[in-house]
Each structure stands twice: as structure tokens, then as C-alpha cells.
Amino acid sequence: MPQLSLHSPLGPLTLTEEDGKLISLDWGWGRDQTENPQLCEARDWLDQWFDDPKTAKPFPLPLEPFGTVYQKKIWAALCDIPVGTVITYKELAERAGGSPRSAGQAVGRNPIPILIPCHRIVSSTHPGGYSGDGGIDDKLWLLELEEATLPFTKK
């Protein structure tokens, strides 16, 4: 599967594509580098998004994350959350079905973070978790970049 890495404010990120669809975004520099049109377009979009997420156009490529039917339902619901908005795990479960715990587990298994914006899901009392290399610091940085208002006091 073709991969392309990019430098980002969060460190190196690697995009992976299959059949013209993005299937993952991982922290770190990928071993193989393929500059195909889809991956270059995704890289360029991310560069622009990191400059100003509020003015970024919709992501131009289809996303095809590998996961269960339930996980895909949760990930689709994440994509409906606007830039700069946060909702709780409970609200996500109410929108997409399941319990806050099962929704949280699906969020934690998101293979395309940032593009499927799992950073926009928080607990009512704290940020919750985040799978990026910087963990919660990355999540809070992304929310600050989007100028999101948090439902709790940031500590």
C-alpha cells in the first residue's frame, strides 16, 4: 500500500492509501514513500488544514478505514462534528448508538485521526484520551488550533 509522510506541527505523520482511498494516518515517518496524486493531495490538504482548520475546504479524498460496522458508524458520526466543536462521549453515543464506553472504544481505534476528528470528543470533566504520539497534549493542541471551547476547565 502506498504511503507518504509529511512534517506537521505534531511531528511526522504518514498517510496510507489503497485504491484511491485513504485508509490510515499514523504518527511517525513511514518506511516507504510514494508520491502518487492521491497522497500528494492529502498531504497538501493537511498542510493547509494545519495553517487554518476553520478555512480548510472539505477533505478531497474518500476515507476507507478498516473496522467493524459499529466502529464505522461512530467514525461517520465524528465526521459530522464541525471544526471547533466538541461533544462528549455520551453525546456521541446518543447520536450514533451504543454506550459512552463502546463509543469511546471505537473512537480510540480510529485509524485516520485528524481527518476523522476523534480529538473533538471529550469527557464532561476532562479531555479523555488520545492515541497520537503526544497523547492528551496533541489532543489539546488540536482543539486549541480549532479554537474549540471545552466543557471543563483546562488544567
Results as ranks from 00 to 15, higher is better:
residue 64 E to V: 00
residue 127 P to Q: 14
residue 60 P to C: 13
residue 69 V to P: 00
residue 98 G to P: 01
residue 142 L to N: 05
residue 19 D to G: 10
residue 29 W to H: 14
residue 110 N to P: 00
residue 86 V to Y: 05
residue 105 Q to G: 03
residue 125 T to C: 06
residue 12 P to G: 10
residue 101 R to C: 00
residue 19 D to V: 02
residue 63 L to W: 05
residue 139 K to M: 01
residue 63 L to F: 04
residue 152 F to D: 04
residue 93 A to L: 10
residue 106 A to N: 08
residue 116 I to A: 07
residue 25 L to C: 06
residue 105 Q to C: 00
residue 22 L to Q: 05
residue 95 R to Q: 14
residue 60 P to S: 13
residue 131 S to D: 00
residue 136 I to C: 08
residue 3 Q to V: 02
residue 65 P to H: 13
residue 93 A to V: 04
residue 24 S to V: 06
residue 58 P to S: 14
residue 27 W to G: 12
residue 23 I to L: 11
residue 78 L to R: 12
residue 98 G to H: 01
residue 151 P to E: 09
residue 77 A to Q: 11
residue 53 P to D: 07
residue 20 G to E: 08
residue 93 A to T: 06
residue 107 V to L: 02
residue 32 D to R: 15
residue 55 T to Y: 06
residue 61 L to H: 06
residue 54 K to P: 02
residue 47 D to F: 12
residue 63 L to T: 02
residue 49 W to N: 07
residue 108 G to Y: 03
residue 61 L to S: 04
residue 31 R to Q: 12
residue 63 L to C: 07
residue 93 A to W: 08
residue 108 G to V: 07
residue 86 V to W: 03
residue 155 K to L: 11
residue 147 E to C: 11
residue 123 S to K: 13
residue 141 W to S: 09
residue 62 P to E: 08
residue 62 P to S: 09
residue 146 E to Q: 15
residue 85 T to G: 01
residue 79 C to M: 15
residue 97 G to R: 13
residue 85 T to L: 00
residue 47 D to W: 08
residue 87 I to W: 05
residue 101 R to A: 11
residue 23 I to H: 06
residue 115 L to N: 00
residue 100 P to H: 10
residue 83 V to Y: 01
residue 73 K to F: 00
residue 39 L to I: 06
residue 1 M to W: 09
residue 10 L to Y: 05
residue 31 R to P: 01
residue 45 W to A: 09
residue 106 A to G: 05
residue 120 R to S: 01
residue 85 T to H: 10
residue 134 G to M: 10
residue 14 T to M: 12
residue 112 I to M: 05
residue 138 D to Q: 06
residue 146 E to W: 09
residue 99 S to T: 15
residue 43 R to A: 08
residue 73 K to M: 05
residue 84 G to P: 02
residue 110 N to K: 09
residue 95 R to A: 12
residue 7 H to C: 06
residue 102 S to I: 09
residue 10 L to A: 09
residue 133 D to C: 07
residue 76 A to V: 00
residue 25 L to N: 07
residue 52 D to I: 02
residue 4 L to R: 14
residue 132 G to E: 01
residue 57 K to W: 03
residue 9 P to A: 12
residue 97 G to Q: 11
residue 20 G to V: 09
